[in-house]
Design a protein around this nucleic acid. Structure first.
Length: 216
DNA sequence: CCAGACGTTGTT
DNA sequence: GTCTGG
DNA sequence: CCAGACGTTGTT
DNA sequence: GTCTGG
């Protein structure tokens, strides 16, 4: 799955890499992006916006459900009531430069840091929703997961969907049909990725520094 | 018809 | 809002 | 994802 | 054990 990631690439590089338009929110390097926090997302029109990680369906009575809807399975995202309308009409790209997965072994857990080979920033496939149950509207999002490729499978059964640059426009286009969007949800090639063991420093969401990504 | 759920992961 | 279960 | 709380009454 | 919060 995907429950933590990093975004430490400077904004000017993201603007260049993802053809961002308009005014972007300010970003500071984040080595430990965690659920319920505000995250940067590329919306249709290539505008960078800030959304809460953990999707709050429009019908939710309160926002607490969002903490549990941090991922949506590619296999069912077009069917589940919580995700279906967002998947069909409100897709986004969530920039990152690495993500963490925990490997279970002999009752323990060790975190690994996974990046693209070369360390370039990339984007997760995301869906977003607007919730107006409290005073102001809350925009929130979820990251879509799929089966792990051969590299990540050594660590965990699932991994986030990474959208290749050639598919950015299609993914963001609300007019493409669900079938076309589903076809983009494939595991990223293992031979284009790297993974290494890191310390449990990253376990604590408040820890946000270089030690999170330091090879063990 | 109305009531109640609506999610993923991992573990058993 | 929409679907499933009773 | 992991970390941390999880309860009431009454007193300071 | 289970739920909430980050």
């Amino acid at each position: 799955m995907c429950g933590r990631y990093t975004l430490k690439t400077p904004l000017d590089k993201l603007v260049q890499q993802f053809d961002l338009t308009g005014q972007s929110p300010t970003l500071s390097p984040n080595y430990n992006v965690a659920p319920t926090q505000n995250v940067a997302a590329v919306m249709n029109g290539r505008r960078l916006e800030t959304l809460r990680w953990g999707l709050i369906p429009s019908w939710a009575k309160d926002d607490s459900i969002g903490a549990r809807l941090i991922n949506a399975r590619a296999e069912t995202v077009n069917e589940k009531p919580s995700f279906r309308s967002a998947f069909r009409r409100r897709r986004c790209l969530i920039p990152a430069d690495g993500f963490y997965e925990w490997r279970r072994l002999n009752g323990g857990k060790q975190p690994y840091y996974i990046t693209l080979r070369g360390g370039e920033p990339f984007v997760f496939a995301g869906i977003w929703e607007s919730w107006s149950g409290a005073g102001e509207d809350v925009l929130s999002c979820a990251i879509i997961t799929t089966r792990a490729n051969s590299l990540v499978a050594e660590i965990h059964e699932r991994m986030p969907v990474i959208i290749p640059a050639i598919a950015y426009d299609d993914w963001l286009d609300p007019e493409i049909d669900a079938h076309e969007a589903l076809a983009l949800l494939e595991p990223y090639p293992a031979d284009a990725m790297d993974a290494y063991l890191v310390s449990t420093h990253v376990n604590r969401p408040a820890n946000n520094d270089e030690r999170c990504v330091k090879p063990l």
